[in-house]
Lab assay of single mutants.
Amino acid sequence: DLRKKIVDLHKSGSSLGAISKRLKVPRSSVQTIVRKYK
């Protein structure tokens, strides 16, 4: 699940930009998912 991957990467200390590059999703999507998770 993409959300879980993003949250896991964020927990392990990756920046939003790094996560978005790695998973090839827009940075804004990463930000939204991380914000919802918090």
Rank of each mutant, 00 (worst) to 15 (best):
R22G: 06
H10F: 15
G13C: 05
V34N: 01
K38Y: 14
R3Y: 15
S15N: 05
K38S: 09
K5Y: 10
I6P: 01
L2T: 06
K11F: 08
Q31T: 08
V7E: 07
K4L: 08
I33A: 08
Q31N: 08
K38N: 09
S29I: 15
G13M: 04
I6Y: 01
H10S: 04
R35A: 10
V25M: 08
K36L: 12
I19Q: 00
R3Q: 09
A18K: 07
Q31L: 09
V7K: 04
L9S: 03
L9A: 05
V30Q: 02
R35H: 10
K21P: 00
S14F: 15
K5D: 04
K21A: 09
K24G: 14
K38W: 11
I33K: 04
L23E: 00
T32D: 12
S12E: 09
R35F: 06
V34F: 02
S20T: 05
K38R: 10
V25D: 00
L16P: 08
V7G: 03
D1N: 12
R3A: 13
V25W: 04
V34P: 01
K24V: 05
K4Y: 08
Q31C: 13
K21M: 08
V7D: 02
L16Y: 12
Q31I: 13
K5Q: 12
S12W: 08
D1Y: 14
I19W: 00
L23G: 00
R27E: 05
L16F: 09
G13L: 02
I33C: 06
S29H: 14
S15R: 04
V25R: 03
I6A: 03
V25Y: 05
L2Q: 06
A18G: 06
D1A: 13
V7I: 15
K36G: 08
L16T: 09
V25F: 03
K11S: 07
T32S: 13
G13W: 00
I33L: 05
K36Q: 13
A18W: 09
K38M: 13
G13Y: 02
S29V: 15
K36V: 07
T32M: 13
R3F: 14
S28M: 06
P26C: 11
S29D: 09
L2N: 05
R22S: 11
P26F: 04
I33R: 04
S20D: 00
K24P: 00
R22N: 09
K38F: 11
S15L: 02
K11C: 13
Q31M: 07
R35W: 06
T32F: 11
V30P: 01
G17T: 15
S28K: 14
I19T: 01
L2P: 03
D8P: 02
R35L: 07
S14T: 09
I33V: 13
I19P: 00
S15A: 05
K21I: 08
K21N: 07
R27T: 05
R35E: 10
S28Y: 11
R27N: 04
K11E: 09
R3M: 11
S29F: 15
D8L: 14
G13P: 01
S14N: 12
S12L: 12
S15K: 04
D1T: 13
V34H: 04
S29E: 12
H10R: 04
K38P: 03
K24E: 05
L2D: 02
S20K: 01
K36E: 13
S20E: 02
L16W: 05
G17L: 11
S14P: 02
V34G: 02
Q31S: 12
Y37E: 04
K21Q: 07
V25A: 04
V7M: 13
K21L: 07
L2A: 05
L2S: 04
R27F: 14
K21R: 14
L16K: 04
D8S: 12
V25N: 03
V30L: 04
R22L: 15
V34L: 13
R27H: 06
S14G: 06
I33Y: 02
S29W: 15
Q31E: 12
Y37W: 12
T32A: 15
